[in-house]
């Protein structure tokens, strides 16, 4: 390989080295990182909002389910934007997969909760409405039925306060059975039948609602999002540190190149001087040769 070939090889190697250092020294994608952290914040906020709205809905304080729909949409959007984001570390990636699965599960459970809670709230409203009307009718027509309705209403109150209390549930069940078997006047028959039907539905649905709610509240979305936030932040810090090292190496390479260029400059200048001196000497020699100096004189130059 000639000198020119070696030079091309050296230059190509230098180009590759500098490009590599430059790429590795670039700052990690700040926009991507901030987008990812914002999506995780949105997940945590929507999860907190969802839990608040679920509890309000269970307590009958949420007038409609639009906020739940909005919370779930927020979770879904944040989860989707995290899924479509470019590569995260393997550990964060596996957490992201589990997070997406949990969001899917929450969505299904929220639908289940809304359906059952709507039935529950409907039956609670109807139970209160019909028991009041029956109590009014019974006070004028049939005091024993009135007492049975009162006993049922009291039992239902105890059950609502402690749905997991088996004795309260059994007491309501007995009262409902007694009322269903009781012969009542035709004017009260339809209301009694409706009261029993809605009472049974409350008895059946309330534990289901509470079970679904417990599963919804046991979600680990916020916890997992926090873990991913830490991992993403760690990843970013590590990438930033790595980039800083490569930037220092890039700087060192630049300094070495400057030194090398300086050395080349000095060598070039020295060569130029030598060439100039040589040219001047040759010029003097030619002049002397022209004027006919003796060999001794020429040798003395």
């Amino acid at each position: 390989m000639g000198a020119a070939g070696r030079m091309v090889l050296v230059l190509a190697s230098l180009l590759v080295l500098l490009t590599y250092l430059s790429l590795r020294g670039a700052t990690p994608d700040t926009v991507l990182n901030e987008g990812r952290l914002a999506a995780l914040d949105a997940l945590i906020l929507n999860d907190a909002g969802l839990q608040r709205d679920l509890l309000k809905a269970r307590a009958g304080l949420l007038r409609d389910y639009d906020p739940l729909v909005s919370d779930v949409e927020g979770l879904r959007e944040a989860s989707t934007s995290l899924e479509t984001g470019r590569g995260v570390g393997a550990v964060a990636g596996s957490h992201l997969e589990r997070l997406a699965a949990e969001v899917n599960e929450q969505e299904v459970l929220v639908d289940e909760f809304k359906s059952n809670n709507a039935l529950l709230q409907n039956s609670l409203a109807y139970f209160a409405h019909v028991s009041c009307r029956l109590a009014r009718l019974a006070s004028a027509q049939d005091s024993t039925t009135g007492e049975a309705v009162g006993e049922l209403a009291n039992g239902m109150l105890r059950f609502l306060a402690a749905p997991s209390d088996g004795e309260a549930a059994a007491s309501v069940s007995r009262s409902l059975g007694g009322l269903a078997r009781r012969p009542v006047s035709p004017t009260m028959r339809e209301d009694t039948r409706a009261l029993v039907a809605h009472g049974r539905l409350i008895l059946k649905t309330l534990p289901v609602v509470d079970n679904v709610l417990a599963r919804l509240l046991a979600t680990r979305i916020t916890e997992r999002a926090g873990v991913i936030q830490d991992l993403v932040a760690d990843d970013y810090r590590r990438a930033e540190s790595r980039a800083r090292i490569f930037r220092v190496l890039l700087y060192l390479a630049a300094v070495l190149l400057v030194l090398y260029l300086g050395r080349l400059y000095l060598r070039l200048r020295a060569s130029a001087r030598a060439l100039a001196e040589k040219a001047a000497l040759e010029a003097r020699l030619q002049r002397r040769a022209g004027t006919g100096g003796t060999p001794h004189q020429l040798a003395a130059i």
């Binding site: 709230q121 039956s123 409405h129």
Partner: peptide
């Protein structure tokens, strides 16, 4: 009648 339990929002 509790219709608002489902028809709400």
């Amino acid at each position: 009648y509790g219709c608002t339990a489902c028809h709400q929002g």
